[in-house]
Nucleic acid binder design. Structure first.
Length: 415
RNA sequence: GCGAUCGUAGCUCAGUUGGUUAGAGCGCCGGUUUGUGGUACCGGAGGUCGGGGGUUCGAGACCCCUCGAUCGCCCCA
């Protein structure tokens, strides 16, 4: 490779071969399951005005200031490559009059961009599948959304992953809890880790999932959200959990599961690999497979009417790491032209095979004696060898596949 | 943003304490053998050792910088 050949941008991936098959399998399964739950497909722009994200996410954390791909276009507008789906979908809901479709169930998938340090299961351009229900205030919406997520993971064959569920209550519950946490941790501030002392000012809820031992000793006695929930918030959460039980979705309570952004209300959840599971090993530190929650406060931050909504997203790369090897499919038939005089015969045969809906590859280049070996290495089910003015067939499979191919070849007059 | 480990042919790797023309397997190309067959053998193409600078008589091996990868911390929409 030449020294001045351009290299790929840090944190981007060229997905190929078995990885690409696993990726496609995740997306195809998502498409299938999303239709079962009657979520409608949306295609969204990859970039938006920066304010779509900055107003939705809030200016509070490093997220907006340091981790978005923002740039000025030629007209002088500040634009940002989407770091998430939710804000853009919310913007579309408001600007396209999608209120008329409420409650609106939508699903999307595609690339997202975050300026972060790449590591296992984490890239600067990465891909997510996403599902949202907008304009539905009822806990049944949460249940349906979670049931879809649960079924998706099952259909992908991912095991050892559990739904961790929490409630953040309504706006008042959340604020009172937050104040109590600050008060509690401030009293022991000197004994907390340096990171958590910082978090105490910026993002106190995050102290709850600190990995530092110095912090963990204080977590057990920290104020619990349950003590701050209003009656309505408690009832809402109970409806969600009983609905999940009725739908057969297994879950476990995770009192310290929080969301960094202010617009989240009530339900918050993540599907996380069980400790010691194969899934946990495969994902390393980036453990959450699928996460989301209720974001009743988002639409107002974009200047729209109060609109309840709930959604989730999941990283396709991470899911793909958990679905196991998805080999590239073998060709149904390989046509080997060993005799150059028969190249036209081979071409018409492979054309007929493909028109009949069977996958086919034609080999007619390179050393004549090695062409058959190439076909064998492709792992084809059937090889049609053409040499000395005649055709020969070799079947490599048994059972139903073979019968189907035999019949098809007979129809085509190639047997 | 911080830390650790790593970066040699297309791929996986080996290269003693720095010393003559940088190696292997696989893959690829060609040939011989075999001849309804994923065999065996022979040969070939392809790296100047991520990039730049330095130490040295001499560096793939040592030092510095830089880019990238991997794993972790921070962050996690």
């Amino acid at each position: 490779m030449s020294k001045n050949t351009p290299k790929a941008i840090r944190g981007t991936q060229d997905i190929f071969g078995a990885d690409a098959e696993a990726f496609a399998y995740v997306v195809e399964t998502f498409e299938r399951v999303r239709k079962l739950y009657r979520f409608r497909r949306v295609e969204m722009p990859v970039f938006e005005k920066t304010e779509v994200f900055s107003r939705a996410i809030g200016e509070t954390t490093d997220v907006v200031s340091k981790e978005m791909y923002s740039f000025e276009d030629r007209g002088g507008d500040s634009l940002t490559l989407r770091p998430e789906f939710t804000a853009g979908i919310a913007r579309a809901f408001l600007t396209n009059g999608w209120q008329q479709h409420a409650p609106l169930k939508v699903a999307a998938h595609g690339p997202l961009f975050r300026y972060e340090r790449p590591q296992k299961g984490r890239y600067r351009q990465f891909h997510q599948i996403d599902a949202e229900i907008i304009g539905a205030a009822e806990p049944q919406a949460d249940v349906e959304l979670l049931a879809m997520a649960d079924q998706l993971l099952k259909e992908l064959g991912i095991e050892g992953v559990t739904l961790h569920l929490n409630t953040l209550g309504d706006a008042d519950s959340r604020e009172n809890w937050r104040a109590a946490l600050i008060e509690y941790f401030r009293a022991v501030k000197g004994d907390l880790s340096e990171d958590s002392q910082e978090r105490l000012e910026k993002n106190p809820l995050r102290i709850l999932d600190s990995k530092d031992r110095r912090d963990k000793v204080f977590l057990a006695d920290a104020p619990k959200i349950d003590d701050f929930l209003t009656d309505e918030a408690t009832a809402f959460f109970e409806s969600v959990t009983s609905g999940l039980d009725a739908a057969g979705v297994k879950w476990q309570r995770a009192e310290s599961l929080v969301r960094g952004l202010d617009y989240y209300r009530h339900t918050a959840f993540e599907f996380i690999p069980d400790e010691g599971s194969a899934a946990a090993d495969a994902l390393g530190a980036q453990s959450t497979v699928l996460g989301g929650g209720r974001y009743d406060g988002l639409m107002e931050s974009l200047g729209g009417p109060a609109t309840p909504a709930v959604g989730w997203a999941a990283g396709i790369e991470r899911l793909a790491m958990l679905v196991g090897e998805k080999g590239e499919p073998q060709p149904d038939i390989v046509v080997v032209v060993e005799d150059d005089d028969m190249i036209a015969t081979g071409q018409s045969a492979v054309s007929a095979i493909r028109n009949a809906g069977l996958s086919a590859e034609i080999i007619g280049t390179g050393g004549k004696k090695k062409r058959f070996d190439k076909a064998v290495k492709l792992g084809s089910h059937v090889i049609i060898a053409m040499s000395d003015g005649e055709r020969r067939l070799r079947y490599q499979t048994e059972g139903p596949v073979r019968e189907r191919l035999v019949a098809a070849l007979k129809d085509l007059g190639l047997n």
